[in-house]
Structures are given as C-alpha cells and as structure tokens.
C-alpha cells in the first residue's frame, strides 16, 4: 500500500506537451478516478505513473520515494490494460504466473500465489484455458487477476471496462469496488464513463488538455463544479447552460452564464418558472422522460420529468430551486450566489 504524489508533472512527445503540469496527492488506499475527454492525457498520465512513459518534468513519488528514474517493475505498481494484454499463447494460469516466473519465484510458490489470486476472483475453473477461449468479462477478470498476483502497492486501470457490454460493465464495476474494499490497495482508474467515475471513486480528477480542472469527491464535483467544463462533464444528462439574460433570476455580479441541471428542473405553467418555452419532443425512458424544450431565446433546454412529459408543442414554464442554480463568469469560472 502506498500514497502517491505528483508535483508539476509534464510530458512532451516531441514538441507537443500533452501533460502540462499536474499536481496530485493520492492517499494510501484511496480510489482515484481520472476522467476527461478523449485525448486529454489520461492514459499518458497513468503510463507515466507506471513507468511505461518517461517523465519530461516534475516529480513522481510513491510513499515519499522519488520514482522518476525507477524501472517500471521496481515501482510496485500493476496495470490492467484496456486491451487486457493477455498473452495469447499462454493459459490463464501461465498468464497469471508470468510475472512471478520472470522474477524467479519457485514453481510451487508460483502455483500457490496464482491459486490464491484465482480464488479471490473466482477464476479457478478457467485456469487451464487460453485467452481466446474466454468471454470478454472473463478476460477482464483474468487481467485483474494477473495484476493482483504480484501484490502491487498501487493498481492502475486504463479504461478496463470499455470493451464490455453495458450489463457486464455494471457487474464488473461492482466487482472492482468490492475488490478495492477487500484489498484496500491504492487504485487509480481511468475512464471516460462518468457513471463509472461517480460510483467507484473516492475522489475524481477531471483532466482537460493535460491539465487538472478539478479534484474532488463525486459529490463535490456534482454540486460545486469549479467551472463550466467540469459542470458539463459531470452529470448525465449534461447541465443546461444558458445566458443569464434568458432566465428570470437575479444574477450575481460577474455572472454571464447560468447552469441548470436537467434533473433539478420542473415543468410548471408558462410564466410561473424561471424560463418559458415550447416542448420540441420528449424521450420516454421508463422511469422518467427527457423533455427537450425549445426556449423563446432559441436555446434548447433538457428537463428530466417523472412519468410522461407534456405533449409536443405544449407551452411550458421551467421552475428551479434557487439553491440549485449555478452561475459562471465570462472565463467559465464558477461565480457564487451571494
């Protein structure tokens, strides 16, 4: 188990700087999730922690020890790849034992440790199969099993569930959460699925263009986003962003944009809410409907509404508790109410 410290970490590929100064403290045993749009540098940052990419600038410390120049294998980290990277010519058992073998662990010890890890992940019945004979979920589990065998200090996951179907993803998500609880190991997890991020994370790191936008618990990010980017990135469906002039609310000084979460909005009589509009269409999703409302100013606003929404073409008003409204200044930074 280990804590992890990043100080001013940068990474250049040739002339382009893809990580542009990241500071982060991960506590021992914490589950930290990196989220951000495609290409923002999540994988690169993870691979730098693993030692698979060298660090162009800054300091990486594990338990206080400087790791910049330490070989990957000596850092005590294990990684689960998006592609799983299971060796196709080896059985599950040999895949899991590979790391022990190259480090010179004796055969009986190897078998014992593989069995133990297999038990943890209920892989016992699969040990003699080849990766091609496994389903996606099973491969995923083997990849995690291979990471566990080495008893690493830090687990790194790079979008481990993105190749699975929706149902399996939910299932594996809970397995990973259970695993974290059982092992108590520090875990860093990359995803661009924000539900995964919200449900798994102790803290979420939102990245954009190689910079940290905000670090915080899922609740902090959802309720108090520092800026427009985080506000729109966290939460599904996305937060509605409107110019302050579009809503009948007293705007705080400096605010130019107002953010209204679809799940905070209610449909009310025209004129009774903060903004009026016409229903464009409604998507029925079972428990709720997602209503697209064309505002009089021309913008479209999404509203989550219990049961069936109003019919297409209906005139509606949208209401919202004042406490749930978010304000943003002209550079996107959050502006507080008072």
């Amino acid at each position: 188990m280990a804590s992890l410290t990043l100080r001013g970490i940068t990474k250049r590929f040739g002339r382009t700087e893809v990580i542009r100064g990241v500071d982060l403290d991960v506590k021992d045993g914490e589950f930290v999730v990196f989220v951000g749009p495609s290409g923002c540098g999540k994988s690169t940052l993870l691979r730098m922690i693993a030692g698979l990419e060298d660090i162009s600038g800054g300091e990486l410390r594990l338990d206080g020890r400087l790791m910049n120049e330490v070989q990957p294998a000596k850092r005590g980290v294990a990684m689960v790849f998006q592609s799983y990277a299971l060796y196709p010519h080896l059985t599950v058992r040999d895949n899991m034992a590979f790391g022990l073998k190259v480090r010179g662990v004796s055969l009986p010890d190897r078998l014992k440790q593989v069995e133990a890890a297999a038990d943890t992940l209920k892989l016992g019945a699969l040990l003699d199969r080849y990766p091609r004979e496994l389903s996606g979920g099973q491969r995923q589990r083997v990849a995690i099993g291979r990471a566990i065998v080495g008893e690493p200090q830090v687990f790194l996951f790079d979008e481990p569930l993105s190749n699975l179907d929706a149902e399996l993803r939910v299932h594996m998500r809970s397995e990973i959460a259970a695993l974290h609880k059982r092992l108590g190991t520090t875990m860093i997890y990359v995803t661009h699925d924000q539900i995964e991020a919200m449900t798994l994370a102790d803290r979420i790191v939102v990245l954009r263009d190689g910079l940290v936008e905000q670090v915080g618990t899922p609740r902090e990010l959802y309720e108090n986003p520092f800026n427009l980017f985080v506000a729109q990135f966290i939460g599904s469906p996305k937060m509605n962003i409107l110019p302050v002039a579009a809503v009948r609310l007293p705007a705080p000084a400096g605010a130019v944009k107002v953010g209204l979460r679809p799940e905070d909005l209610r449909i009310v009589a025209p004129g009774a809410g903060v903004v009026d509009g016409t229903v464009v269409h409604a998507e029925y999703t079972g428990a709720a409907s997602l209503v697209h409302v064309g505002l009089d100013g021309g913008e479209t606003c999404l509203v989550v509404c219990q049961g069936d929404g109003p019919g297409d073409g209906a005139r509606v008003g949208l209401g919202c508790e004042v406490g749930r409204v978010r304000w943003f200044g002209d550079s996107g930074q959050a502006v507080s109410q008072s």
Partner: peptide, 10 residues
C-alpha cells in the same frame, strides 16, 4: 504485451 511484461519485471 511488451508493456505488461515489462511492468511485471521481465
């Protein structure tokens, strides 16, 4: 594959 193996100490 190479990255995984290197990480495992090969």
């Amino acid at each position: 594959y190479e990255a995984a193996a290197r990480l495992e100490g090969a």
